[in-house]
């Protein structure tokens, strides 16, 4: 095994070169390059966490804005609803009023028409009575030869008609 048989010859060289190489590795790379790389990584992770915090803040702000917008929307919607309801009530009231007045108008005209019909009927009745009395007077004179006064004839006709 050369590790043992050669040891007396090579130990100084092995130790010297190992210490030299390891020393350069430790001071030149371990203590010079390594901290720089570590600081790069740290700077990046700090930047990432800062950006995340920033994003979180932005999201909170956006949420707030949205909530405000939503509240305003709700408010306006309620306002609009109220306006619509008021308008509806107003319109309904107006329509009712107009219907009522039209109704009254129509009733008045119907009443007038009815009165006129009543008057016409009464007039016609009176005329029929007069004609009937005259006819009855003449018929009595012609058939029985008895002369009847006009008043008696009229009374008889009235009795017969309303009987």
């Amino acid at each position: 095994m050369p590790q043992i048989t050669q040891l007396p010859l090579i130990y100084a060289s092995q130790i010297f070169w190992l210490l030299l190489v390891f020393g350069v590795l430790f001071f030149g790379i371990g203590r010079t390059m390594l901290p720089k790389i570590q600081s790069t990584v740290e700077a990046r992770s700090r930047r990432i966490s800062e950006d995340l915090a920033e994003a979180e803040r932005a999201r909170a702000a956006a949420d707030e804005t949205e909530a405000a917008w939503r509240a305003r929307m709700d408010e306006s919607r309620a306002e609009a609803m109220k306006l619509t309801a008021a308008a509806k009530v107003e319109t309904a009231r107006e329509a009712e009023l107009r219907i009522k007045s039209a109704d009254a108008d129509a009733t008045a005209r119907i009443d007038a028409a009815e009165a006129k019909i009543q008057a016409a009927t009464e007039a016609a009745m009176a005329e029929i009575e007069g004609v009937a009395a005259e006819a009855a007077q003449e018929m009595v004179t012609k058939l029985a030869g008895v002369s009847v006064s006009r008043e008696r004839a009229a009374a008889a006709v009235k009795e017969a008609l309303n009987g």
């Binding site: 010859l9 090579i10 060289s13 092995q14 010297f16 070169w17 190489v21 350069v24 590795l25």
Partner: peptide
């Protein structure tokens, strides 16, 4: 009195470095 000649072992350590 110490022999510190450059050897193949030292060479490969330097290559490692």
């Amino acid at each position: 009195a110490y022999d510190i000649s450059f050897t193949n072992s030292a060479l490969w350590m330097v290559i490692t470095l």
